[in-house]
C-alpha cells in the first residue's frame, strides 16, 4: 500500500521541478548572451554563499536524523534535530538576505538588467520555498512537542521531509549553475 501523503508530495515535487526548470532555463538562456551592466561573475560573492549553502545542505542531514529518531520513538531527539534543521535553514535565509542587501547597495536590482531579472527571480522563488519549508517544519516541531505526532504519523512527517530535501536539491542546481557557473 502506498502512502497517500508521500505519493502526493512526490507528485507535487515533480510539478515544482517543472516550475523551477523554466526559471533555470530563462537564467541560462540570458546568461549566454552578452549584456551591459552587472553579471554573475562580477557581482556574486562565492565564498560567503558557499558557507551559507553548506548550512542548507547539512540541514538535509539533520532532518534525516530527526526522521530516523521518529521511527524509533525518541521524541526528544526528534525535536532537537528538527530545531537544528530549522536553525540551519534560517541561517541560509539570513545569508540570502545579506547577499540581496549587498547587491542592492551596488545597484544590482531586478529591474537593472537581465542578470538582475533572472537572478532575483530564480533565487527569490527558491528562498520563498525555503521559507515555506521552515514554516512546515515549525508546524511539525510544534505537533511533536505537543505529543500529536507518533510513529504512526511518521509518513506525514516524511512527506514534509521530502519537500525539504527537494528544496535543498534545487539549491544544489542553482548554486552549481549560477554561482559555480560564473567561474567558468
Amino acid at each position: 500500500m502506498y502512502s497517500k501523503a508521500k505519493l502526493a508530495m512526490a507528485l507535487f515535487i515533480a510539478s515544482e521541478a517543472s516550475f523551477f526548470a523554466l526559471l533555470i532555463v530563462a537564467y541560462v538562456f540570458y546568461h549566454g548572451q552578452p549584456q551591459n551592466g552587472p553579471n554573475a561573475a562580477d557581482s556574486l560573492d562565492i565564498p560567503t554563499t558557499t558557507f551559507y549553502s553548506l548550512c542548507l545542505f547539512s540541514s538535509s542531514a539533520t532532518l534525516w536524523l530527526s526522521e530516523r529518531n521518529l521511527r524509533r520513538g525518541q521524541y526528544d531527539r526528534v525535536i532537537a534535530w528538527l530545531v537544528a534543521t530549522i536553525g540551519l535553514g534560517a541561517i541560509f535565509l539570513y545569508g540570502q538576505g545579506r547577499e540581496y542587501l549587498r547587491l542592492f547597495h551596488n545597484d544590482v536590482t531586478i529591474s537593472r538588467n537581465l542578470f538582475g531579472t533572472t537572478f532575483f527571480t530564480l533565487t527569490g522563488f527558491h528562498g520563498l520555498h525555503v521559507l515555506v519549508g521552515l514554516c512546515a517544519l515549525a508546524v511539525v516541531a510544534g505537533l511533536v512537542l505537543r505529543g500529536l505526532v507518533r510513529e504512526r504519523q511518521a509518513e506525514a512527517v516524511e512527506a514534509v521531509g521530502m519537500y525539504w530535501h527537494f528544496v535543498d536539491a534545487v539549491w544544489v542546481v542553482i548554486f552549481g549553475i549560477v554561482y559555480l557557473g560564473s567561474l567558468v
Binding site: S18, L23, A26, S111, T117, T121
Partner: peptide, 19 residues
C-alpha cells in the same frame, strides 16, 4: 507549472520592471 512560471515572469516584468 510551465504556464505558471511564464506567468510569474510576465507579472514580474509588468510590476517590477524586469526584462
Amino acid at each position: 507549472p510551465v504556464l505558471n512560471a511564464a506567468l510569474v515572469m510576465l507579472l514580474i516584468d509588468r510590476q517590477l520592471h524586469a526584462h
